[in-house]
Each structure stands twice: as C-alpha cells, then as structure tokens.
C-alpha cells in the first residue's frame, strides 16, 4: 500500500513543510532569480545565455545546500533525526524526503530563470536544450545535497547557516558563477577548475551551446565530490546522538 511506503510519507511531509513555511520557501526560490534579473538581465546585457547557465547553477546549489544543511542541523538538535533513526523508516527515506524538496526547488528555479531569460534576455534554445538545462541542473543538485547533508550532520544548528554562507558565496564566486571565470587572472582560473560548481556550470553551458565541456572530466569531479560527502554523511549519521 502506497501510504505505508516511508519514502512517500516523508516526501509528503517535506511538501507540507514547504507549503506551510512560505517565509522560508519563497525567499529561497526568489533570491537566486532576483540575482539573475539584476546582474544577468539588467546590468550585463547581451550575456543572458551564459549567465543563465551560471546563475541557475548558483541557485540550484543554494537550494540544495540550505534545504539540507540548515534543516538537518536543526532537526538533529531537536532530536527529530534521532527519533527517525529509531523508527522503522530507513535512512534512505529520510534523505529521499529532503532530496525531493531540493530537486523541486532546483526545477522551479531553473524554469523561472529560463522563462525570464527568454522573455527579457532574448535567449532562444531548442526545446530539447531547455529540458536538458533543467535536467542537468536538477540532477547536478545531488552532490550539493550530499554536501549540505554532511555539513548539517556535523555542524551545530547555530553554526550551520553561517558556515553554509561562508561556503556557498565564495564557492559561487570562485567557480565563475557570477562573473565568468574566463575573465579571472590565470591563477584564479586554475582554482575554479577544481571546484564542483564550475563543472556543473560547464555542463549547463555545453547543453546551452555556449561552450563545449569535457563531460567525462566534469562528471568525474562532481561524482568524486558527491562521494566524499556521502562518506561524511554516513559517518555523521553513525555518530548521531542528539546534540553533540
């Protein structure tokens, strides 16, 4: 029976959670979109396609990091996670519920930005490219979900928002998501090439036809990055014992 499936129950719970906390949901969705409108469409005209790819990466990464990181840290402090671990719900279902929220955010952010880029930035793409962009950026949120999850399991609820911002904003900037990394000085460019958001943006730029990417290399970097945080998540889950 469907209702008994814990994954679906936790997805439902997450959906209700998002609906009932518009003060969290709306800003998280609108912040990256507003950012793109200001910088991608109003200030730097003529770069709408490139900046759509990079700012959408930025938005998706933010949704993934924050919907996992902050809430996991808080729920851990409240003892909710400990309770879940004691319950028959498998750990996968707990993660699925949260991953659902982050992916939903990712899709909504990419679609909103795409619509704005088409309406005000003269961006024109084949239908397959529009879907490809939404697809790669939603799936590309997964490694950042794992990163948020791991950080949420290891950080205290007070530290989580601050540390996440400290990771999120520089990571976005250094990966060339605000200003293309191609205008960075050489040494900074080589830093960008080591950062996972740079590689997610590279895949998006490839799909949009802005710059071709080395798919094997970029997927490897994103995969390894996801793996590191998956391990950290597993370790964090094991040491879970209320507030530490």
């Amino acid at each position: 029976m469907i209702a008994a499936n814990p994954s679906i129950q936790l997805v439902r719970a997450q959906w209700l959670n998002l609906l009932r906390t518009p003060a969290y949901t709306l800003p998280t969705l609108l912040f990256p979109v507003m950012f793109y409108v200001f910088f991608g469409l109003m200030m730097l005209r003529g770069q709408a396609l490139w900046l759509l790819c990079t700012f959408a990466t930025f938005g998706v990464m933010g949704a993934a990091l924050f919907s996992f990181g902050v809430s996991v840290a808080t729920e851990r402090a409240q003892g909710w996670l400990l309770l879940l671990r004691a319950s028959p719900a498998p750990v996968g279902a707990v993660i699925a519920g949260k991953a659902f929220g982050a992916l939903l955010f990712a899709i909504i952010i990419v679609v909103m930005m795409s619509a704005l880029a088409a309406a005000f930035g003269d961006v024109r793409l084949e239908t397959a490219q529009w879907f490809g962009l939404a697809g790669i950026l939603s799936l590309g949120a997964i490694p950042f979900c794992l990163m948020g999850l791991a950080l949420g399991l290891w950080l205290s609820p007070n530290a989580a928002p601050a540390v996440l911002n400290l990771v999120y904003l520089p990571l976005g900037f250094l990966s060339g998501l605000w200003i293309p990394s191609t205008v960075f000085p050489g040494w900074l460019q080589s830093v960008a090439e080591w950062l996972p958001p740079y590689h997610l943006a590279a895949l998006a730029l490839d799909i949009a036809g802005a710059r071709s990417a080395d798919w094997g290399h970029s997927l490897t970097v994103l995969g390894l990055f996801g793996l590191v945080f998956a391990v950290m998540t597993a370790l964090g889950w094991r040491r879970l014992s209320g507030v530490s």
Partner: peptide, 10 residues
C-alpha cells in the same frame, strides 16, 4: 514546469 519548458521559445 514541463508546460513552461515546452512553451519557451525556440
């Protein structure tokens, strides 16, 4: 979301 993507201009 799917409908919006389908409606976006080519």
């Amino acid at each position: 979301a799917i409908a919006t993507l389908l409606l976006l201009p080519g």
